[in-house]
Amino acid sequence: MDLHLRPIYQERASDSNTLGVILVEKIDSVSPITDNFDTVLFIITKDNEKPIFTKHYSFDNNKKAVMHTITEKQIQKWLIVGYNKKIVDWLFYGKVLFDRNEYVDTLKKNLKNYPFEGRQVKLGVEFAKMIRRYEESKVSFDARDYFDAYNHMIEVLHHLARQTIIQQGRYPEVTVWNQLKGYNVEVYNLYEKFITSHKEIKERLLEIFDIIKMLIEESVEESAQHLLEVMKQKAHWSVQQLHEDEELNVYSVNLEFFVEFLVEKGYIEIDRIETKSPGVFHRYYTVKKK
Rank of each mutant, 00 (worst) to 15 (best):
A13E: 09
N17G: 03
T18Y: 09
L19G: 02
I22N: 01
S29W: 09
P32E: 11
P32Y: 06
I33L: 09
V40N: 09
F42V: 13
I43P: 03
I44K: 03
I44R: 03
T54Q: 12
F59D: 01
K64V: 08
V66K: 08
I70Y: 04
Q74C: 06
Q76E: 15
L79N: 02
L79I: 12
V81A: 11
N84H: 15
K86D: 04
I87A: 07
W90S: 04
L91K: 05
Y93C: 14
E102V: 06
V104Q: 02
K112M: 04
E117L: 12
R119L: 07
K122E: 05
K122W: 10
E126M: 10
K129P: 07
V139W: 14
S140R: 13
F141N: 08
R144L: 13
D145I: 08
I154F: 13
I154Q: 15
E155M: 12
V156S: 02
H158W: 03
A161T: 06
I166N: 02
Q167I: 09
R170T: 04
E173S: 12
Q179S: 12
L190C: 13
F194K: 06
I195K: 15
H198W: 08
K199T: 14
I211L: 09
E222W: 02
S223K: 00
A224T: 01
Q225C: 00
H226A: 02
H226S: 01
H226R: 00
E229G: 04
E229T: 11
V230M: 02
K234F: 02
H236C: 00
Q241C: 00
L242P: 02
D245G: 04
E246K: 15
E246W: 09
N249Y: 12
N249T: 12
N249E: 11
V250G: 09
S252Q: 13
F257I: 07
L262A: 09
G266D: 09
I268R: 08
P278Q: 05
H282C: 11
H282P: 03
R283F: 05
T286Q: 14
